[in-house]
Simulated assay, not measured.
Amino acid sequence: MIDTSGSNGCIDCNHRAAIFKHLNKDELNRIDDTRYILSFKPGEQIVKQGAPFSYVLSFTSGLAKIIVEGSAKPDMIVKLVKPVEFIAGPGLFVDNRHYFSVVALEKSCVCAIDTYVFKDVLRRNHNFNEAYLSAVNQNYLFVMQKLISTFEKNTKGRVAEALLYLANDIYHAEAFNLTFSINDLASLSGMSKESAFRCIKDFGDDDIIRMSKKRIEILNLKLLTEISKKG
Rank of each mutant, 00 (worst) to 15 (best):
N8R: 15
G9C: 08
G9S: 13
G9T: 12
C10R: 11
I11T: 08
I11H: 06
D12S: 12
D12W: 00
C13G: 09
N14I: 00
H15C: 12
R16F: 01
R16N: 08
A18H: 03
A18P: 00
I19N: 03
F20E: 06
F20R: 05
K21P: 01
K21M: 09
N24G: 15
N24I: 14
K25S: 13
K25F: 10
D26F: 13
D26L: 13
L28N: 10
L28T: 04
L28E: 05
N29F: 03
N29V: 02
R30H: 08
R30N: 08
R30S: 09
I31C: 14
D32Q: 14
D33V: 04
D33Q: 13
D33Y: 08
T34K: 10
R35N: 12
R35K: 15
I37W: 09
I37H: 12
L38R: 15
S39Q: 15
F40P: 03
F40W: 03
F40E: 05
K41V: 02
K41M: 10
P42R: 05
G43D: 14
G43A: 13
I46W: 01
V47R: 01
V47A: 01
V47M: 01
V47G: 03
K48E: 14
Q49W: 05
G50Q: 06
G50D: 08
P52D: 07
F53E: 02
F53N: 04
S54G: 04
S54L: 06
S54D: 09
Y55I: 00
V56I: 11
V56C: 05
L57F: 06
L57N: 03
S58V: 07
T60D: 07
S61R: 00
G62K: 03
L63R: 00
A64H: 03
A64I: 00
A64K: 01
I66L: 11
I66C: 11
I66Y: 01
I66H: 00
I67C: 06
I67M: 05
V68A: 09
E69S: 14
G70R: 02
S71P: 01
S71G: 13
A72N: 15
A72W: 07
A72M: 11
P74V: 08
P74F: 12
M76N: 10
I77C: 11
V78S: 06
V78H: 06
K79N: 15
L80D: 02
L80N: 04
V81Q: 05
V81F: 03
V81S: 10
K82A: 12
P83F: 01
P83M: 07
P83S: 13
V84P: 04
V84M: 04
V84G: 05
V84R: 07
E85S: 10
F86K: 04
F86Y: 09
I87P: 04
I87A: 06
A88G: 11
G89Q: 06
G89N: 14
P90T: 11
G91I: 00
L92K: 01
L92M: 13
F93E: 12
D95H: 07
N96D: 13
N96E: 12
N96F: 07
H98M: 08
